Simulated assay, not measured.
Amino acid sequence: MSAKSQLCLHEFILLGYQEHSVLLFSIFLIIYLAILLGNGLIVAVTTLDPALHTPMYFFLRSLSGLEMCYISVTLPKMMANLATGQRSISLPACAAQMFFLLFLGATECFLLAAMAYDRYLAICLPLHYMTIMSLRVRVGMVVGSFAISLPVQLLQIGMIFSLPFCGPSKIDHFFCDIPPVLSLACADLYANELAVYTENVLFVIVPFGLILASYAHITRTILRMPSSTGRQKAFSTCSAHLTLVSLFYGSAMLVYLRPQTSDSVKVDKVLSLLYTVVIPLCNPLIYTLRNREVKAALSRLLGRKQSFILATG
Rank of each mutant, 00 (worst) to 15 (best):
S5G: 14
S5K: 11
Q6F: 11
L7N: 11
L14H: 03
L15V: 11
E19A: 14
H20W: 08
S21C: 10
L24K: 11
L37N: 05
D49W: 01
A51C: 07
M56I: 12
F58S: 01
F59H: 04
R61S: 14
S64I: 03
C69Y: 12
I71K: 06
P76M: 02
K77D: 11
M78L: 09
Q86D: 15
S88N: 15
C94F: 02
A96K: 07
M98R: 01
F100L: 07
F100S: 03
L101T: 05
F103Y: 08
F103S: 03
C109D: 02
L111V: 01
M115Q: 09
L121S: 05
C124Y: 06
H128P: 00
T131F: 00
S134N: 00
S134E: 00
V143D: 08
G144M: 02
F146K: 01
F146I: 04
I148Q: 07
V152M: 12
Q153T: 13
Q153G: 09
L154Q: 14
C166T: 14
S169Y: 05
K170C: 11
F174S: 03
P180A: 06
S183P: 04
S183G: 08
L184Q: 08
A185Q: 14
L194P: 14
E199T: 12
N200L: 07
L202F: 08
V204T: 15
V204S: 11
V206W: 04
P207V: 00
A213V: 13
R220F: 13
P226H: 13
S227D: 14
T229S: 10
R231W: 09
R231D: 07
K233Y: 07
C238D: 05
L244R: 02
F248P: 01
G250P: 00
M253L: 06
D263S: 13
D268V: 04
K269N: 12
K269A: 07
S272K: 03
L273W: 00
L274A: 03
L274Y: 00
T276Y: 07
V278W: 02
P280G: 06
C282A: 15
N283M: 11
N291E: 12
S307Q: 12
F308C: 13
